[in-house]
Design a protein around this nucleic acid. Structure first.
Length: 582
DNA sequence: GCCGTTTTCGGCCCGACTGTTTTCAGTCG
C-alpha cells in the first residue's frame, strides 16, 4: 500500500473538523489544522520517512502527539483517535462545513435539532421547510443556506488559477482607481503572495472616511458583479458572474494612514500574521489591520516597510510570507534577494508553427528581441507528439537549417538557438537518438504522456532523462495541469540530487495551467543545489506575458537571480549549456 | 496539540458583518 502525504493530511483535517463540530478544545483544533497544512506542504514523503517518531517530531510544527499518530498510521493504516472521532458523528457531517455560512456551531445545531446528517438531508429539509422554528435559525439564515447550496452544486467553488484571478483583480483595480476619493488600490491575499490557485480576491482601497460609503456602494454595482454577499461602509463582498469565473471578491476601504497595516494584514498568510502579532506582543506592542501600536499609540501603519522595521525586521516580500522561516531570516538580515521579471534575459522553451505554435521562427525571435532578451531557444515538439505536429527526424534536420537561416538574417540582434522539446518516453528513453540531439544547441526533455504511471517508474524515467548527455533542462517535470490532472509524483529528492550532480536545470514552466515545478518543489530543488529554468513554453504572441506567473512561483521558492539560468549573461548561459552537454 | 532569548505551564491574533438577538454568537478572512 502506498500512502501519500495528502491522505494523511486529510485525516488530520478531518479530525479537526469533527472536533470543531463536537465543540472540542479550540487550540487543539487549530493544532490539527496546522499539522494537516504542514503535512500537505511537505516535500518528503512521510511513507518513506517511516514510523520514526523522533524524525517526525523533528519537523517544525509537528509535535510528539502528531508524530505518534503519523507513525501509528504508517504502521497500521489507521489512527485510533481518528476512528473514535468518526464513531461520534454521522459520516456525512464534516462535508457540511464546506458550505458557505455553515460553521461548526451551525452544523452541530442542525444535526442535534433537525437530524441533518449530510448535504442531501440538508437539501431535503430546506425544500420541505423542515428547518423553521429552530432557535437561532431565522428565515434569512435559511434563505442564505439555500443560496449557498445552489452555488456549491454549480461547481464554481474550485480555486481559480493564478492568471485568471490576476486578470480579474486588475479589472477591478482599474475601476476602483477611477472612483472619487480613491488614493490607492491594491490586491492582497494569496493573489499577492503569488499562490498557484486563488480562493477569492481581496482588494484594498485607501480613501478618507467620508468617501468610504460611496466607494463601497459603487463597488457592488460594478458591471461584473452578480451577487452582493455583504455590504458595509468599509467591508463588502460580492460574487462575479459565472462568465467571469464566479469568484468572490472582497473589498476593504481604509484610511490612507492605515494602508500599510491593512495591506500587511490582508496579504497574509494567516500563519505569517500570527507570527508577526506574537512578535509584536513580545515587544510590548500590538498589531492589527489599522496599525502597530504601543499603549494604544500608533508606532507604524502607513507602509508595510515601516511596520516590519518597527518590529526589527527587514521588509519581507509577499511571496515569502508563509511562515516558512522568513521571519527568522528577516531578523538576521538574511532574506534572499528574489528574482524579478526584469532579471529574466532568455527564453529557453518555446514553439513555432513548425509544430503546434502559431508564429514563425522569425516572429518568435522578434518577440524575444522586443522583450530585451539576449537569447531565445526554439524548441519544437519531437516526433511522438503527433497531436502537436511533432517533428520527424527529417523535419527536424530541415528545421535546424531553417533556424540557422533566420539567425543569419537577424545579424546578431539575438542569440537564436535551435533546440527541441524532446519527449521523455514512458521508459525514460528520449524521442530522438543521441546523435541527432548532438546536432542541436539545447535540449529540453519533458514528459507528455503516461502521466499516471506509478511513482517508482516515474522516478526511474526522469532520472534516466537527467542522465542523458545532451539534456540541459527537464521541462515541466511532473506534467501536471492545475485543477485537471495531478501528473507524475516521482521521488523529488532523488531527482534533485541527480539534477544537482549533473548540472541539469529543472524547469518552472510559467504557463499558469502548469506552474511545474510547483513552489514547494522548486524551494526544495534550490536547497539541493539545483538550477532552475523559468520558461514560458510560448506557443503564441501573448504567452510571453505568462512569465510573471513563473517568476512568482520562483519567488515563493526563495529563488535569487543566481538560481535561475535565464538570468545569466549571454556568455555565461552559453558556457552553462555547454557544461551540461558532454 | 504545540511551544519556550521572560515560560516545561500557561498561554495561544484580531476585527467586520450578519442575523437573531435585546447585548451577542457565529462566520469569515
Amino acid at each position: 500500500m502506498s500512502v501519500t502525504n495528502q491522505q494523511i493530511a486529510a485525516i488530520f483535517q478531518q479530525m479537526a473538523d469533527i472536533l470543531s463540530i463536537l465543540d472540542g478544545d479550540h487550540f487543539r483544533i487549530l493544532s490539527f489544522q496546522k499539522s494537516a497544512r504542514i503535512i500537505e506542504e511537505l516535500v518528503d514523503d512521510l511513507a518513506s520517512i517511516g514510523p520514526d517518531e523522533k524524525m517526525l517530531a523533528g519537523i517544525q510544527g509537528i509535535g510528539k502527539g502528531t508524530a505518534q499518530r503519523i507513525a501509528e498510521f504508517l504502521r497500521t493504516g489507521q489512527i485510533k483517535d481518528h476512528q473514535d472521532l468518526l464513531a461520534q458523528i454521522p459520516p456525512g457531517l464534516p462535508a457540511l462545513l464546506g458550505i458557505s455560512g455553515m460553521g461548526p456551531k451551525t452544523v452541530a445545531l442542525l444535526w442535534r435539532e433537525a437530524g441533518v446528517d449530510s448535504i442531501d438531508t440538508l437539501k431535503s429539509k430546506l425544500e420541505s421547510d423542515g428547518l423553521t422554528g429552530i432557535k437561532g435559525l431565522g428565515p434569512k439564515k435559511i434563505e442564505n443556506l439555500k443560496q449557498s447550496l445552489t452555488f456549491a452544486a454549480s461547481s464554481e467553488t474550485k480555486r481559480r488559477r493564478l492568471g485568471d484571478a490576476l486578470m480579474l483583480a486588475n479589472w477591478f483595480l482599474t475601476e476602483l482607481r477611477k472612483m472619487p476619493g480613491v488614493k490607492d488600490a491594491n490586491y492582497a491575499g494569496s493573489l499577492r503572495r503569488g499562490k498557484e490557485t486563488i480562493g477569492d480576491i481581496d482588494l484594498l482601497v485607501a480613501a478618507d472616511d467620508k468617501h468610504a460609503q460611496a466607494i463601497s456602494d459603487a463597488f457592488v454595482k460594478l458591471d461584473l458583479v452578480e451577487t452582493i454577499l455583504a455590504q458595509g461602509k468599509t467591508k463588502s463582498s460580492v460574487r462575479v458572474a459565472p462568465t467571469a469565473g464566479g469568484m468572490q471578491v472582497d473589498l476593504r476601504v481604509l484610511e490612507p494612514e492605515s494602508y500599510g497595516a491593512a495591506l500587511l494584514y490582508f496579504t497574509g498568510s494567516k500563519e505569517h500574521n500570527v507570527r508577526l502579532r506574537e512578535l509584536a506582543i513580545k515587544q510590548g506592542m500590538k498589531l492589527n489591520e489599522y496599525a502597530l501600536t504601543r499603549d494604544d499609540k500608533p508606532v507604524a501603519s502607513k507602509t508595510e516597510t515601516d511596520i516590519y522595521r518597527a518590529l526589527g525586521l527587514d521588509y519581507i516580500p509577499p511571496e515569502l510570507r508563509e511562515d516558512h522561516g522568513e521571519i527568522a531570516l528577516a531578523t538576521e538580515g538574511k532574506l534572499p534577494e528574489l528574482v524579478r521579471v526584469e532579471d529574466i534575459a532568455a527564453e529557453l522553451h518555446c514553439h513555432t508553427d513548425a509544430s503546434d505554435g502559431s508564429l514563425t521562427i522569425l516572429e518568435m525571435a522578434m518577440l524575444a528581441i522586443e522583450r530585451g532578451f539576449h537569447t531565445i531557444a526554439i524548441t519544437d515538439h519531437s516526433k511522438s507528439q503527433t497531436v502537436a505536429n511533432g517533428l520527424s527526424e527529417e523535419r527536424l534536420e530541415q528545421h535546424i537549417l531553417a533556424v540557422r537561416e533566420v539567425a543569419k538574417q537577424l545579424k546578431g540582434r539575438i542569440n537564436l538557438l535551435v533546440g527541441s522539446e524532446v519527449d521523455i518516453l514512458a521508459d525514460g528513453k528520449l524521442d530522438y537518438s543521441n546523435s541527432l540531439l548532438k546536432e542541436l544547441d539545447i535540449v529540453v526533455a519533458s514528459p507528455h504522456h503516461a502521466l499516471n504511471q506509478d511513482p517508482a517508474k516515474a522516478t526511474k524515467r526522469l532520472l534516466k532523462a537527467i542522465e542523458n548527455p545532451y539534456v540541459s533542462i527537464i521541462g515541466h517535470p511532473t506534467g501536471r495541469i492545475i485543477n485537471r490532472r495531478p501528473g507524475l509524483s516521482p521521488d523529488m529528492k532523488q531527482l534533485f540530487h541527480a539534477a544537482a550532480q549533473r548540472g541539469v536545470a529543472l524547469e518552472i514552466n510559467a504557463n499558469h495551467y502548469r506552474l511545474d515545478l510547483r513552489d514547494t518543489h522548486a524551494r526544495a530543488a534550490i536547497e539541493a543545489g539545483v538550477k532552475l529554468a523559468i520558461d514560458t513554453d510560448a506557443h503564441g504572441v501573448s504567452d510571453f506575458d505568462q512569465l510573471i506567473y513563473g517568476v512568482l512561483t520562483a519567488r515563493r521558492a526563495g529563488a535569487t537571480k543566481a538560481d535561475v539560468v535565464n538570468c545569466m549573461s549571454a556568455d555565461a548561459l552559453k558556457k552553462w549549456i555547454a557544461s551540461t552537454r558532454k
